[in-house]
Nucleic acid binder design. Structure first.
Lengths: 304, 304
DNA sequence: CGGATCAATCACATTTTGCGATGCAATGAA
DNA sequence: TTCATTGCATCGCAAAATGTGATTGATCCG
């Protein structure tokens, strides 16, 4: 077995062609073909089914592929780790974002990060908190910014609490409640509401608050980004709730404190043993976020 | 870079000697020395500090080592996966065990497993539940049998509930409560108690039950194995609580049901993407354990 | 001081890999 | 059916990488 053979085989699997794989690997088809044959011989099973005109993976090939990719990943990791040991941060950094993220400007943050470490390739991936957590756990993502409802435990990951803010109600200018000095959830539950998509962490946090108050409400409009929520409210279609800091940026809308407001928590999470690039990025996040007091390891145990 | 170079470098790091590493790799010292030099050249940093008489890792070498081991692990994984695709289960299987495990005989189970797949090398590791869970998460263990207290969530791992039994009190023959038809925790809390070590999952489960009943008790004897607990009780030093099935095997001791008995849960846990050997072992566990109804994904949400 | 130990270096043999040309099988259009 | 095309396997040869054994040079220890 051989690093080159592995790379060749993965290329063939991805290109579904020996010829194109050879081009991608900057070699000739005969050399690649030979190496694949040697690899198959050593492993004791053919990896590819060569029907003329088409190359397909055999069952053995399907079993081979994930482990092979992991091996190539390890190779890159070796280079990046050794480079980091001599002060050169490089490699790839995959950052997951929830769409409701407003507590810090990640693009600004990544601009600063890119200035410090221009050799790092950055990839964004947006999605819902649960999905991002799975991605981080399975190392498809290095770092993610997620929202979680109170009491949730994030096990097996590093976490940093970035924000724990009370939400405020955001109303269209002419709304009957717009001039109130304070409202409570009971007032809001009977209104037409806009909130984040069901299943998202942000949505769960508000749902949880209504449920705890014994209230049911109906969400007429579901959005996946704060700017969409703002437009829905501005148009007078519904009322919403956002963190106070976010609301401050919404010009021309009525902002009213909520007595029994739910809190919006945002965490930065990353896996154990981060890559050098991920570690450097987390360090920057740490430096740029005022350090909030972190919750206990097992908040569920703290309040029996 | 090269698989052989990586293997050579890891061998040097582990043997702290080029000569011994060469022997271990079935080659001569000069060849190995040359390959290490080439590897260091490609990586742009020396991995080893050659003081005469001693070889030590440089900072770059320390950064290199974990990623290199992971790469070699991937190589083995490729072989094992391809072999599994052709029906040959082999490789290594690391099983973690809590000492309080009595619901199934893991040695019997592994004997049967070894009969089915003799090419798999099995390694045992005993410890406390929390520690085993970390080991499984970080892939130092493939499968673990752990005890958890009610309400705990195991996130990011596959789980199978193996046992959920009520505990019964076990008393020395002449004990005042030995002839009772039933006792409650209040009766037991004032007795001298033997239980598992503080910090273990089994211990937490009983501690939690006493706390929930508003009782405090003092554990005079801490043990790390059921057989030790039995001997302490037999000697008349203390009373204990064990699952009913376990108690059935304790001849000559008084077994008394407990009205508000805590339950002892035992889970089998394993990481996502198990190795072929781990997957085969879990399959056997599944077949040999009567399938209990599994708890919800988020039991904390189910009882708000 | 002198033997022992250990890694680096060198010349040379062997193996592996790459390259270009060719062969062979299958497909699809005339 | 025939023929051009596509795509992978095979082969001979050149180049590169790797292994071997002997030697060197430095350091440690008695």
């Amino acid at each position: 077995m051989n690093l080159r053979q592995i790379a060749y085989a993965v290329a063939v699997a991805e290109e579904a062609s020996f010829t194109r794989a050879a081009e991608r690997c900057h070699t000739v088809q005969s050399a690649l073909s030979h190496q694949i044959a040697r690899l198959e011989e050593e492993l004791g099973a053919p990896l590819f089914e060569r029907t003329s005109r088409r190359v397909r993976l055999t069952p053995a090939g399907h079993a081979f592929l994930p482990a092979a990719r992991q091996l190539l990943h390890s190779e890159q990791r070796i280079r990046d780790e050794v480079a980091a040991a001599t002060g050169q941060i490089r490699g790839a950094l995959s950052v997951g974002l929830i769409s409701a993220l407003t507590v810090l400007d990640t693009v600004d943050l990544l601009a600063e990060f890119h200035g410090m470490h221009p050799q790092v390739d950055v990839r964004f991936a947006s999605g819902m908190s649960e999905h991002l957590l799975v991605n981080v756990r399975e190392h498809r993502c290095d770092v993610a910014f997620v929202g979680l409802w109170p009491g949730e435990i994030i096990e097996g990951l590093n976490t940093l609490l970035l924000a724990d803010e009370a939400l405020v109600a955001v109303l269209p200018p002419g709304h009957p409640l717009a001039s109130s000095s304070e409202v409570c959830l009971r007032d809001l539950a009977v209104q037409r509401c806009v909130d984040y998509r069901a299943g998202s962490g942000a949505r769960r946090q508000t749902d949880e608050a209504y449920a705890a108050a014994g209230l049911t409400r109906h969400v007429h409009f579901e959005v996946d980004h704060a700017s969409l929520m703002e437009r829905v409210i501005r148009r007078g279609l519904a009322i919403g709730m956002v963190p106070a800091e976010t609301a401050a940026g919404m010009q021309g809308l009525a902002i009213v404190p909520v007595r029994d407001a739910p809190r919006r928590r945002v965490y930065c999470v990353w896996a154990y043993h981060p890559t050098p690039a991920a570690a450097a990025f987390v360090e920057l996040v740490l430096a740029r976020s005022q350090a909030l007091p972190q919750p206990l390891a097992y908040p569920a145990m703290a309040t029996p």
